[in-house]
Design a binder for these strands. Structure first.
Lengths: 149, 149
DNA sequence: CTATGTGCAAAAATTTTGCAGTTCA
DNA sequence: TGAACTGCAAAATTTTTGCACATAG
């Protein structure tokens, strides 16, 4: 995702490209994703303390509207945003032990989605799948505890 | 799920079975599921206006802890609760047109989950899958609009 | 120049907690 | 009786909005 694409998108809507938006976009796109507003703002404020929370809030809403960001609400309740990496869809594996979030892509899932949707007369646009469990290291810790315990 | 089961569960924890809890449980279990706290409270208050929002809030948290209810946060942001119908797992089809939420079960999904998890060294306990799109009637409306449009 | 954007502060909407009086076991 | 429960009000969060000033186009 190049900054140019953003400029094109907003000008198409008669909106403006500002210093703040460029700053937020830059930081947001180069982040790992899954960031809460507070986290993004903290990050942005480090670069430019004058940028307010409200601007970050409104910019992320804007990016969501333009399709460059996606709001996500995981089971823990906090609203998070992640860059959309247009074209590629991915889902999430979430470790209940250490909180790590791993992204994955699976074609089987995509076709399964279509089959299920057809069975219910739905026309699907997108889906969300989250797998909750323990990653390798965390699963191992739990197993060790049980051994001879 | 019989009320008796609830009585057993809470007495096991040294908790009490009260009129309010019975009322909330009754209404909650006989609902369609996916209700927000405000909705549940409004419903409960119709039966007994003296029952406060706080009690509903705390009771649903309690039910969640006991495994009788599950908190869900769909993409629209509102926290909703649904009865767990122990043993059966299901996922959701969500209509973006009319907001209808349809539950479904799919064995293929369950095995796919295991395959994906293994590939990433995860041990999965549960998952969440949501398919967003348009149900039959809503999809039809959209199509009609496009015709000769 | 003018419509849009920004930032502060404050309003709204949610979720959670403290406390005094009530109730179940 | 005593620990748990209830309900009100108020605190803590989180999300949104109003408004005066700044700025891109």
């Amino acid at each position: 995702m190049k900054p140019d694409r953003f400029k094109t998108l907003i000008s198409e809507e008669g909106l403006k490209s500002t210093r703040q938006r460029a700053e937020i976009l830059d930081i947001f796109l180069n982040s790992t994703g899954h960031k809460s507003l507070a986290e993004i703002h903290a990050w942005v404020a480090k670069m430019d303390p004058k940028i307010g929370y409200t601007t970050v809030y409104r910019t992320l809403k804007l990016l969501t509207r333009l399709g460059l960001a996606a709001e996500r609400k995981f089971a823990d309740g906090e609203t998070r945003y992640e860059p959309t990496h247009e074209g590629t869809h991915h889902d999430h594996l979430i470790c209940l032990g250490c909180g790590k979030i791993v992204e994955f892509e699976d074609d089987g899932l995509e076709s399964l989605q279509d089959r299920i949707a057809r069975g219910h007369g739905f026309k699907i646009f997108h889906h969300r799948m989250e797998l909750y469990g323990y990653c390798g290291p965390c699963a191992h810790k739990k197993t060790s505890h049980r051994r001879k315990g």
